[in-house]
Design a protein around this nucleic acid. Structure first.
Lengths: 340, 340
DNA sequence: ATGAAAGCGCTAACAG
DNA sequence: CTGTTAGCGCTTTCAT
């Protein structure tokens, strides 16, 4: 064993001050003499001392841990989120505990609360679609748990959400299709009940309205954000007469399904049919032809969420309260082209 | 605020025993009277008491936290790993802290040690390619940190590895191609220096040898496990004369690159060229034609890794020491077919 | 089989 | 600005 762990006591002894003072230095309390602070800091450095997280936590009822609660959005999404959060955590001295769970579970809220309580998490970030669960949010609020939800609309107070405006992004993409000359644009929705499903569809409707195109319910098919549903819905859509000249799948997985179907029907993309998706997942750039789609600033959102949490923990409530609404951007690739 | 947290003292008081005895019950110590134990357990249940992790940790120098150290293998891999680990953690009362980092960082080892020390992690799981870093492993061993490495060969003591035999899997796939009639099988390796690169290539060589086919270095191109390298290598390989009739890309990303190149060259798959990959990533099933590939039992490996760690923590060293070698399995899809 | 008391390493009143 | 004194909630010698 090596020189058994250095503690605050060692630092205090060497600096000839009380532990309290050292503690103040560690916690950046202002009430320490400049000289003393410098001296203590030096000793801390020399010793390579770093405070014990558990002891600190026990005494201050904190944990220096953030939690990430999510269902099972696609793995790439999670990956980006992790990196976004951690880039902020690292500087601030926090670590991240992950908690994948089941959106449909009856005990979701209870489990989440237990997760938070058990680890005394200093804050949690909740991803869609779980972030849409107001009951969970209310429970967190009740228990005075700091949380931030990633969402597509302002479904909570500014300090509790980071928003990307999916409606606007979808509208923009729809307009882009219209500008390419498309009038009959099929649309494949997400599963019923999700806000993202509603918002994206709304973006589609609004854009059509804005462009003076009548909304035709027959051109809208209900998908599930899965590849299979993309297959199914596109089959139905492409069976229509006259056929839509473009299909807007509200996520990439389904868009890939559309492309598969089109291929099976002998339709050329983008010659006979333009296809667009949403997510800019890895699939979008790997598939052939490469998919025109919408990229959410996921990493940035995650970073902001973590920043808000940490700001709040540090008592900088104003910083935590700044509202942010990001807008996803259009990524033009090979599945779209002007209708001639 | 609610009835401020129930502590071990409350339980002890109500049970009219000392904290020590309650502690024994919590920790399943055998030295407690059957009656007493039952009584205490009941009270714990009634009160909904659950011990404070931090306090326990502080006193027993543990954390009930496991760590996951990885570079940035593909997101789906991570996702599966997380689920595997957590399925075990949940029952056992552990939580998982993630630590993505940079394989090439000079300070990798130091950072990892600091990560472990800072959180007093009870154990860590290391994923490839970082798991191949013997220096890191040695450092962990030195510091008496429990760890398990996911690997493709027995690069450590049984208690420190969970192995999937990639060599055998690649050999099997190669034989499969040979049986389809292929003789000129191009091969795209991974980046230099990785054990997986070496092992997979070795599987290819051995299988060829076993089938009486001479190993032709000209048919082997050095890739980087990236899509772009798949593009580049396949271009070189398909430029050969005579052309290989099949290409074995040692991961799916590169295989997708191969398919793209083939398409660009006007080659039909699998008519003119058979292509296989390794990983069974999401790409494999979404691409068209769907990719024949190799599936690693990732989730199972992760589960085993966590089990080993927990067994070791619980002092069940024999359980931790059982050696496991899993074999990835061949997934036949649409990119292969008999040579006529 | 059970208990008393001493910490684990740190923060938090409350002085001074 | 700095020190003293208590704990935070649990585990662990060492007795009994």
């Amino acid at each position: 064993m090596k020189p058994s762990k250095i503690t605050i006591t060692d630092v205090a002894r060497l600096a000839r001050v009380s532990k309290r003072t050292v503690s103040r230095v560690i916690n950046d309390s202002p009430k320490v003499g400049k000289q003393t602070r410098a001296r203590i800091k030096k000793i801390i450095d020399d010793l390579g001392y770093s405070p014990d997280v558990q002891a600190r936590g026990l005494a201050s009822r904190r944990s220096y841990l953030l939690g990430l609660i999510y269902d099972r959005p696609d793995a790439f999404y999670i990956d980006k989120v992790l990196r976004g959060i951690l880039s902020v955590c690292r500087e601030a001295g926090y670590e991240l505990v992950v908690h994948p769970c089941d959106y449909h579970s009856e005990t979701l809220t209870r489990e989440a609360l237990s997760f938070v309580a058990r680890l005394k998490l200093d804050g949690v970030i909740v991803l869609p679609p779980i972030s849409e669960d107001d009951q969970l949010a209310a429970a967190l609020e009740d228990e005075h748990v700091r949380y931030v939800r990633l969402a597509s609309i302002p479904l909570d107070k500014p300090e509790h959400v980071v928003i990307s405006n999916e409606r606007v992004a979808v509208a923009e993409m729809t307009e882009y299709l219209v500008q390419l000359g498309h009038r009959r644009i099929g649309y494949i929705t997400g599963p019923k009940g999700l806000i993202s499903t509603r918002e994206r569809l709304e973006g589609y409707r609004q854009a059509l309205a804005g462009q003076g195109i009548e909304y035709d319910e027959g051109l809208v098919a209900r998908g599930e954000y899965t590849f299979e549903s993309g297959l199914r819905c596109s089959l139905a859509l492409l069976d229509l007469n006259p056929r839509p000249t473009a299909i807007f799948a509200s996520n990439d997985e389904m868009a890939v399904g559309v492309i598969d179907t089109a291929r099976n029907l002998g339709l050329h993309i983008p010659g006979d049919l333009s296809v667009v998706g949403f997510d800019d997942s890895i699939l979008a750039s790997r598939i052939n032809p490469a998919l025109t789609t919408i990229r959410r600033p996921v990493r940035e959102m995650a970073r902001l969420a973590a920043s808000k949490l940490i700001a709040s923990i540090d008592g900088r409530e104003e910083d935590a309260r700044v509202g942010v609404i990001l807008v996803p951007s259009l990524v033009e690739r090979e599945t779209t082209r002007p209708l001639d």
